[in-house]
């Protein structure tokens, strides 16, 4: 069942598995951490995992379009980080903590 040959030849499955594990690590980070900065970093990890799978499929299907999409995803991720961090600064000034459990007090 477990063929050693499968580990010696890197194929599309290896890259997909790497991308999935990276996505799962990011997902765990969003769920187990309460620090809002680290939650934003975990979202960046998940976006990177998706980029990795886009480039993998682009490579194995010999199609450039996947790389263009990765370019757009990176742009949107940078924009999302800028707005997210501006919001973090704003919330920190109000609540004096980065723990998301205390953000339930946000009102008005």
């Amino acid at each position: 069942m477990l063929d050693l040959n499968e580990f010696m030849h890197i194929g599309i499955h290896h890259y997909i598995a790497l991308s999935l594990i990276l996505f799962a690590v990011g997902m765990m980070g969003v769920m187990i951490r309460t620090n809002v900065l680290i939650i934003l970093m975990s979202i960046e990890l998940m976006l990177n995992a998706v980029n990795l799978s886009f480039v993998t499929f682009s490579h194995y299907n010999k199609n450039f379009d996947g790389q263009i999409i990765v370019f757009f995803v990176m742009t949107i991720a940078a924009a999302e980080a800028a707005v997210g961090l501006a919001l973090v600064v704003l919330i920190f000034k109000h609540v004096k903590t980065l723990n998301v459990r205390f953000f339930e007090k946000l009102r008005g």
């Binding site: 890259y15 480039v55 682009s58 490579h59």
Partner: peptide, 14 residues
């Protein structure tokens, strides 16, 4: 994976 431009953008942007 043969995507040098995307790799460079990754380093610069991220």
């Amino acid at each position: 994976l043969g995507a040098p431009f995307i790799g460079a953008v990754q380093v610069i942007v991220y």
